[in-house]
């Protein structure tokens, strides 16, 4: 990290777009009138998503909207490295270079970026102006190392389990204007083990309650009143039902994921849909029980 300065060339003016205004209204609405300075980070982010970077007129505009002095917005914008203080490529590639990714081949990714885009640095745009790249510290996806984050107007997505070839393919697709599926580029769905068969939580006995023993807290009044009795059978029947569902659910999720994989190249926006079955797990459990 180095000293962060405003770009030498700044636009004359800045105005939020209609879409941005809607987002601003949402954020400003969250804070009471006398605390509206709290919205400064969301507003800076909205400005950055609109323009690709935070320009000086935008800081003044945000200061006016948040009723704070210019210098306070300037302080925030220079403090957080996620704010680009200079124009960056349409796609900003952040290559994680911290130990796990480095051990798994981040150097290869950096070489691709250097070859394909050019010199490291947020403000160093590629020849076509579409890309710029920089090396960042851990982005917290170590189990899918090596990885990059690509930020563009549509979002900030992780591309994981990369190889230099895979990254090059992604860059080519982005340059061609195609949408690229986010997440691991291998057959992995999340960060699950890559080995074909791993026995985890598949033993039905784990879920039928047989391992559970009624607990009696010493000195509790309830324990004294009901030393034993009807509590034993009731939870057992409930547990059996949910165990069945729990045993089925992971299988179901895996099947869905397997089906989704070959389709590949889905638009990035639709990605969360693929994950839904996993999220529905508790609901299914309830129905069965």
């Amino acid at each position: 990290m180095s000293v962060r300065r405003l770009a030498a060339v700044q636009p004359d003016s800045f105005a939020f777009s209609k879409d941005s205004e809607a987002k601003i209204a949402f954020w400003m609405n969250k804070y009471p009138e006398e605390r509206k300075a709290s919205a400064v980070i969301p507003l800076l982010w909205i400005a950055q998503k609109q323009e690709g970077w935070v320009c000086e007129p935008a800081m003044r505009e945000i200061a006016a909207r948040c009723a704070m002095p210019y210098i306070r917005v300037y302080e925030v914008a220079t403090f957080y490295t996620m704010f680009n203080l200079e124009p960056v490529g349409e796609h900003l590639i952040q290559v994680c270079g911290t130990t796990p990714c480095w051990l798994r081949g981040a150097d290869g990714l950096k070489a691709v970026c250097e070859k394909r885009i050019g010199k490291k640095g947020r403000g160093n745009l590629s020849a076509d102006g579409k890309f710029s790249w920089e090396e960042v510290e851990c982005l917290g996806a170590c189990s899918n190392a090596p990885m990059v984050q690509i930020s563009n107007p549509y979002g900030d997505y992780y591309y994981e389990d990369l190889t230099p070839e895979a990254l090059e393919a992604i860059l080519n697709d982005l340059a061609a204007g195609k949408t690229v599926e986010t997440g691991p580029v291998t057959r992995r769905h999340c960060s699950e083990p890559t080995e074909a068969k791993v026995k985890v939580l598949e033993d039905a006995a784990l879920f039928d309650g047989s391992y559970a023993k009624p607990v009696t807290l010493p000195h509790s009044a309830r324990a004294a009143a009901k030393p034993d009795g009807d509590r034993k059978s009731k939870p057992a029947s409930g547990a059996a039902g949910s165990a069945k569902a729990a045993a089925e659910a992971p299988k179901k999720a895996r099947d869905t994921a397997a089906k989704a994989k070959p389709a590949a190249k889905k638009p990035a926006a639709k990605k969360p849909a693929a994950k839904k079955p996993a999220a529905k797990k508790p609901a299914a459990k309830k129905k069965d029980g």
Binding site: R4, L6, E56, P69, Y70, Y74, E75, T78
Partner: peptide, 19 residues
């Protein structure tokens, strides 16, 4: 007159007026 501020962070923190 809140014109002075500390920009940057950590070792790169600098005291300045706005622009």
């Amino acid at each position: 007159v809140p014109e002075l501020g500390a920009i940057g962070r950590g070792e790169d923190m600098e005291i300045t007026t706005y622009l």
